[in-house]
Amino acid sequence: MARTPVTAAAVDVSRGGAAPAGASGAERISALAQRHGALVVLVAVVLVTSLSFDTFFTGYNLNRLAVNAAFLAIVALGMTFVIITGGIDLSVGSVFALGGVLAAWASQYGTLPALLVPVAAAGAIGLANGLLVARTRLAPFIVTLASMLGARGLMLAVSGEGNETYLVPQGSAFLELAQGGLFGIGYPVYLTLALFGLGGLLLRRTGFGQSVYAVGGNEDAAALMGVRVARTKLTVYLMSGLLAGFAGALNAAYLGSGVTILGFAMELDAIAAVVIGGTLLTGGLGYVSGSLVGVLLLKVIQNVINLIGSLSSSYQQVVSGLFLIAVVVAQTYLSRRRRIG
């Protein structure tokens, strides 16, 4: 007997059947909460902190915070695309570190190599991730777990088991790119905002962006509707790799050297930021602006804990973890409500 109508009707039953004419009030509220919940919390945290600590809302502290957040934000941008397609990229932390070391090493040959070498290497890893995920249909978790290990190994090999630290030559343009600024705001902040602007445009206003949502929302349906599923997946992993490599290079310039212990568990911070920003971990729904807010929120919490001083910075992780759980619980609750309402 027909098996399919069972599922079809089950969906209908859970939806309560009757067709609402449009988005209901509850639907709209939960969509707003999904989308802007993190922003509301961010504003609240910033307000409270500004009132509590004189040293928080100062140009110096805010700029430092923003530049600090820029590197994670760039990584989170790529991660946003990957997660919206329903995938995950665990390799970004390792690629970030590899990018930093390569950039510091290549900076002796000039600014252009210092940018191109890490980005090219990161792009190659992203491409490999994408090819494996898109063509062989292996689970992204496994594929990127493998490349995470691989990239970390490569980084150690390049840096002589981590013993060799390459320094970026003093006074080079590469250094200036990350350490300089305009109107009291660091260049990395401008770069990050520009990348997010482009990313948002790409996601919301182009056919490629639509296919990213479609692949994450219902891969089979997307394929039937003519979306190039494999190409879309390939592209998002490539983008994620490129952005992680670029962020690593920028970070090396900011620090003046390729620090091999950086980027550890950064992929998890990036995933946390993306999810806090309202992107569904299951794919199909998400916003680049949300990821930016998510990154800022994580960094502000870190900053606050530093300001309190008496608290060990270890607690930053605890707070971030609790926050993540709260967001995921809220998301699950909201989407369940929406399905019923």
Binding site: T4, P5, T7, A8, V11, Q210, Y213, A214, G216, G217, N218, D220, A221, A222, L224, M225, L280, G284, L285
Partner: peptide, 9 residues
């Protein structure tokens, strides 16, 4: 039989 579209879009 089952609608083949993307529900979240």
């Amino acid at each position: 039989q089952e609608v083949n579209l993307v529900p979240l879009m």
